[in-house]
């Protein structure tokens, strides 16, 4: 089995898995019916992508693992999503900011992944990019509405940006698996669009009348499996059935 490729896929898919799970928590609790339906759509897109990635990973592992065991039967330290996506739904401002900061990255990432030497990854990217392009539009529009809305909404979204900005730098950290895959023309060299990421995210925030935090220190660790305390609870819920009733078909 190609361990580097396997781990590389997990690195991509875990982001969508954990973010999809977070959005799934909101289903039925949105600020309006229309917004509820929209957030669920994004969640469904992400889970769809996750399934494609994990089915491919299971095929590479070829040892009886399935999309579900990969998704639900790892330990906390084996999840390699970035810290950003596991941050909780404190309020709609956090949900939108987390989405936006990830979408800008996700879109740029998929543009590059379409050119991957790995045909399966390139195909998944090609399909996903249409979905993510819509996510980005949705979250950018909401950043602007909330930033340039009422005083209350402005303060809330500014707070969310202040808190979540610290998790942006990690998007561009590269693990050993990442580096190997980049060298083989399979992986995406994220550093190549890092400047562009910050430029575009900043543009939207400024248009939304928000201030971009000037941070000296950023948070990191997710990609090495060292997570914030939030992830454990998310996993406890997500894994509950598979852990309680092992080896069953659902």
């Amino acid at each position: 089995m190609n361990n580097n490729l396997y781990n590389y896929i997990l690195g991509i898919a875990d982001n969508s898995l954990i973010l999809g799970q977070r959005l799934g928590e909101l289903c039925g609790h949105g600020p309006s019916l229309e917004t509820d339906i929209a957030c669920t759509n994004i969640s469904l897109d992400l889970f769809g992508q996750v399934r494609s990635y994990f089915q491919y990973a299971a095929q590479i592992a070829n040892d009886g693992r399935s999309e579900d065991t990969i998704a639900m039967l790892r330990t906390e330290r084996q999840y390699v999503n970035v810290l950003l996506v596991e941050q909780p739904n404190v309020d709609f401002a956090y949900t939108i900011t987390r989405q936006f900061l990830f979408d800008v990255y996700h879109y740029k990432f998929l543009v590059q992944l379409q050119k991957s030497n790995d045909a399966t990854l390139a195909a998944i990217a090609k399909k996903s990019i249409k979905e993510v392009s819509y996510h980005l539009r949705f979250s950018s529009d909401w950043i602007k509405r909330l930033g340039d809305g009422t005083e209350d909404s402005h303060n809330r979204i500014q707070n969310a940006v202040n808190d979540l900005w610290a998790y942006t730098d990690e998007l561009f950290h590269q693990t050993p698996a990442d580096k190997t895959m980049i060298a083989e023309g399979i992986g995406v060299d994220t550093l190549k669009f890092k400047d562009n990421y910050f430029k575009e995210a900043t543009e939207v925030l400024i248009e939304a009348t928000l201030v971009v935090p000037d941070l000296e220190y950023f948070q990191k660790g997710g990609k090495e499996g060292v997570h914030t305390e939030h992830l454990g609870y998310l996993l406890a819920e997500m894994q509950y059935m598979q852990r309680t009733y092992p080896n069953m078909k659902w």
């Binding site: 928590e25 469904l44 999309e67 997500m238």
Partner: peptide, 22 residues
């Protein structure tokens, strides 16, 4: 939704609850 036992069941349930909103 957050506790669905498989990814297939999770998306089906999400889509169903979403339909109810619709």
């Amino acid at each position: 939704i957050t506790r669905a036992p498989s990814l297939r069941r999770k998306v089906a349930l999400l889509a169903k609850v979403q339909d109810e909103a619709g």
